[in-house]
Design a protein around this nucleic acid. Structure first.
Lengths: 193, 193
DNA sequence: TATCATAATGGACACAATGTCTGGAATGCT
DNA sequence: AGCATTCCAGACATTGTGTCCATTATGATA
């Protein structure tokens, strides 16, 4: 799986390609070690063996580098999904498998994509929710055979937070009780294929 | 809904309680305006009318204040949940309703906590997943009576991203195909109460 | 290969924010 | 009223950011 780093121009100076590649790789390598938030531009440059001033000729700041890195890989995922879609025909949630596969190959990248956004405030809340779900699932011995508990916990917690965020962001036509009822139904029975 | 800010000691100097309350309120007020990451300790102090050095006598850093603030609100939710738990008896996902209700009252806070990070790539990935889910649900006419389509979309997309993030962050003992299979099962049938 | 345009570099710089520490003023506690 | 505690402004060293520049190095091109 090769990642195409070009973008705008048709031909790119090899020095540019080399520098950007080094910086992107360095960022991805550092994320598992320190976490994105703790990484400084200088850290990246030292890991990449690139001058700090050079960094700024390519990217405005740390976030710009991250965006560019992810952008390149997202294109690759998109292509893979289209290909898979034609093979498998009609299957529920076709995006799922290609995504897992790409994540399997580019694990550090996906770590960067999905791990704490730097806004650590999200993570704290997420962890709280997960704990609440975990307690209930364990306490009430809910769970399928062969379904890892943690998988179900992540599933439910992630779904809840997404739904809550959506509800809060919209007009909230639904009452809290209604929103809760819908969540309970989905969590309990799924989409009911 | 009153937020109890006490914690350790039984009696707290009023000046302490006042200062901490001001700081916590200032943080919450600032989050919707600037986003957590962009807020400086000085911003918080000016909004709270509290000396910057005073800040550090109470909290080690910005994150400590954040934790304490969330802590205070979550305690309130927790009490509410326990109360609800006794009323309704044994019900699945007891955290859900109290959370929706708290979000209903403290909407700005939750909006700040859950809103898209402003990170365009992050949001782009989420939006792509949502789009994929949306297309499939609509195309295949899946959906409960009385279940708003957007609710189900948010639910599934959020669950998928959470599961993917968890899978990537851990050792990934599961193969992509296995992870996919588990996801499909949960999405289709829920926890199967 | 020689030339030239472009990129990389280290160092200097102004700036912003952090976290620590002071002595004195203010304020709640009893 | 007296006392202990808290608040505060300001100074300080430290770290990271983003800009700029003169110089060197290196692809691209003919």
């Amino acid at each position: 799986m090769k990642i195409e780093r070009a973008g705008e121009r048709n031909t790119i100076d090899r020095r540019v390609a080399r520098t950007r590649g080094l910086l992107q790789d360095a960022l991805i390598a550092l994320i598992p070690e320190q976490g994105y938030a703790a990484i400084t531009v200088d850290d990246i440059c030292q890991r990449a063996n690139v001058g700090r001033s050079t960094f700024y000729t390519h990217y405005g700041d740390k976030d710009a580098l991250r965006s560019a890195t992810i952008e390149a890989h997202l294109r690759s995922i998109g292509r893979r999904r289209e290909a898979a879609s034609q093979e498998t025909g009609s299957r529920l949630f076709e995006f799922s498998l290609p995504m897992f596969e790409h994540a399997h190959v580019f694990r550090p990248l996906h770590h960067a994509l999905l791990a704490s956004s730097g806004d650590t405030i999200h993570d704290e809340l997420r962890e709280r929710i997960r704990r609440a779900v975990r307690e209930e699932l364990v306490e009430k011995r809910i769970g399928d055979r062969g379904m890892p508990a943690e998988f179900a916990i992540q599933f439910i917690a992630g779904a809840f937070l997404a739904v809550l965020a959506w509800w809060v962001a919209t007009d909230m036509n639904l009452s809290p009780a209604q929103a809760d009822e819908l969540f309970q139904r989905m969590a309990g029975k799924g989409v009911g294929a």
